[in-house]
Simulated assay, not measured.
Amino acid sequence: MATVIDNDTQSIVVGNGNDRIAIHLKQSATDTVQNQSQSLLLTSILIEIGDIEIQIRRSTKSKNEYRKENILPTSTQSPAIAFHNGDLQKKPATEEKSNANPAYWDYSVVHGPHMWSKIFPHIQCKKFQSPIRIYTDQCEFDSQLARHPFTFKFDENCCQTIENTGRSFQVTGKGSSSITGGPVVDEYQFLQFHMHWGANDLEGAEHVIDGVRLPGELHIVTWNTSKYKTPQAAAASDQFDGLMVFGILVKVVPSDNQEFAKFIDLLSNVTYRSEKININQATIALKNILPSDTQAYYTYKGSLTTPMCYESVCWIVFRENAGLSKRQFDQLRQLKYVCKGDHSTNGNISQNFRPVMPLNGRTVYRSF
């Protein structure tokens, strides 16, 4: 058994690999009566048992908010319990779907990741889904990866627009780009990048590395232009060479990330779902978003982490992390999944990540 204390989080880990059980206790300081002293308030507990995750977290809602929703806890001394995928969200009025169209999905309990296989039945047959847990000591070192380093070429028009999709932000463009090398033999082209995050600093990343889940993960999505005519055809191919997605895990750091600030500071212009703006030429340089060491990474065959969850992805998860300040993470959490004018709910996108999926016999390779 190992106990790890990191700032305000204490982790207790028993076993390893698929037999591993981890309990993460997150605390924060809270003022006592008349601010004379501080005590630690247990804010969340995350329990990981194999591929199962259970989270219990203290609700941030006030007593009056519970009264309005007619769900006031029986004891005001007891914290509310919420499941891993967030509070039970009411579907925004602007996105109400009829029963004839069951394809609506989000990250709530009702339409979230645990329900996707019911909303999209074909997912039930899929065995090589993403994200996954990665343990470095269980990965297979592939010396060939170092002999075929990545080459990235992006022009200044790759990032032309930023949009609130209602599930994240998304940056796209029509500039010329080329990505070669690594575990693939074909040429790939930049399609878009987006990000996943959580309601707090204990969760948010989709991939979990060596038992640690960071609060964010940025995905750079590219598609195979050598074999497919369109990005849609590449994604729907269900061939593991259709897409190549680069995952950059993001941690909390003391100061702002100046490169990431170039798009995070634009988010106030796309607060609501479907809002979209143009980006000035050369504002965002993709090469500066990539980690300094792009040759150290994990790679495996997997899927998109959002519906339709096609198994057409060669995943590249960089070893090197990026960093955002707490202020920048808070900016992400101000994005809303509702359209402007919809006041049926506060609508903040606070948890937009999929839980880890079973490895099901796949091999994860590493280049380092």
Results as ranks from 00 to 15, higher is better:
224 N>P: 01
198 G>M: 04
192 Q>A: 15
41 L>F: 09
119 I>N: 03
314 C>K: 10
58 R>I: 05
29 A>S: 13
215 P>F: 02
136 T>C: 02
330 D>C: 01
25 L>C: 11
130 S>E: 03
145 L>N: 00
235 A>Q: 13
223 W>N: 00
319 R>D: 15
305 T>Q: 09
161 T>G: 02
282 A>I: 08
97 K>V: 06
314 C>R: 09
178 S>N: 14
347 G>I: 05
264 I>S: 10
300 Y>L: 01
259 E>F: 05
49 I>K: 11
206 E>Q: 14
53 E>Y: 07
319 R>C: 14
162 I>K: 04
149 P>I: 10
356 V>R: 02
15 G>C: 08
323 G>R: 02
55 Q>H: 06
364 V>Q: 03
25 L>S: 12
128 F>G: 10
307 P>T: 08
298 Y>D: 04
209 I>K: 03
354 R>M: 06
21 I>Y: 05
151 T>F: 06
330 D>M: 03
344 S>I: 06
76 T>H: 05
264 I>P: 03
52 I>E: 04
3 T>N: 14
100 A>G: 14
132 I>D: 01
246 F>I: 02
71 I>G: 04
363 T>N: 06
358 P>A: 10
35 N>W: 15
339 C>V: 07
4 V>P: 02
315 W>Q: 11
75 S>R: 09
157 N>M: 01
324 L>V: 06
92 P>V: 09
287 K>S: 13
